[in-house]
Amino acid sequence: MRESDFNVGKFFAFLFVLILFLFMLSPLFEEGDGAKIDKNLSDIKNRVSYFHSLKSVKEIERILSDNNDFSKYREITDSAKTVIFGESKDLENGTANLVTSIVLDYRGFDTLGELIVLFISILGLTIILSTLSFAKFEEPSFLQITGVKFVTPFMILVGIYIFLHGHLSPGGGFPAGAIIATATLFSLIGCKFNYRVSNLKFIESNAGFFVILLATLGLYFTGSFFGNYLPTGIVGKLYSSSLILIIYSLVGLKVGAELSVGIKTLYNGEKDDDR
């Protein structure tokens, strides 16, 4: 594919990046009503000092000693005040795993930054290593080939389970991607399964595109990047979290494909493969 050709996909990608750039620049020019410092706390020194933390600890001690019901201090839900596993509906972002709701909802930019860091590192690795010549590996024996052919589908299945249940159980996109990449590594070393880099590139680029697209749609619907705009269900079910299930699945696919491309490049380079 020549560089000078006009491509519809390139044009839309450029337009999308331009719109994102304008969104990023927009807080410079307009006064939004997003985060504001409360006027009672205008003395910023008071917020971070030792006495303030002492005060808040005293406050928590008072709350604990008064034997209140804690449901009025946790403002989580609109309808039900206490969270019951398997029953309560319409939570803020119905995840049963607290770490996932922090990683993908409250700190969504952090995950996006991790994705970008991983992408840039794999990019540099492929650029540097695709010019070198590579050594040959040993041929696997019969027992290794059969064993690896038996084990690798189960490893990929475990990876898919981990990123699908990222909002219910520990795990998530990144370890699932690492497990999928380990499975592809096994199939590469053990039974010489020669997967194509171009397919992995297709998966990786589309997953990364849809992550940013869904997050930007949150900017339109709720007013914040990575905001949840899909309905939430019952806590503990598979379709309980609104956007987190989809984004974590895309993150798992993207990380797995990226690490697989890196391993394939480390194994024999991109020379004997179609670009």
Partner: peptide, 17 residues
């Protein structure tokens, strides 16, 4: 079952290497 499958393969590949 998984231990029964993976352990001989691991020992085989270690001995082979």
């Amino acid at each position: 079952f998984f231990i029964l499958i993976t352990s001989p393969i691991a020992s085989h590949s270690l001995a082979r290497a």
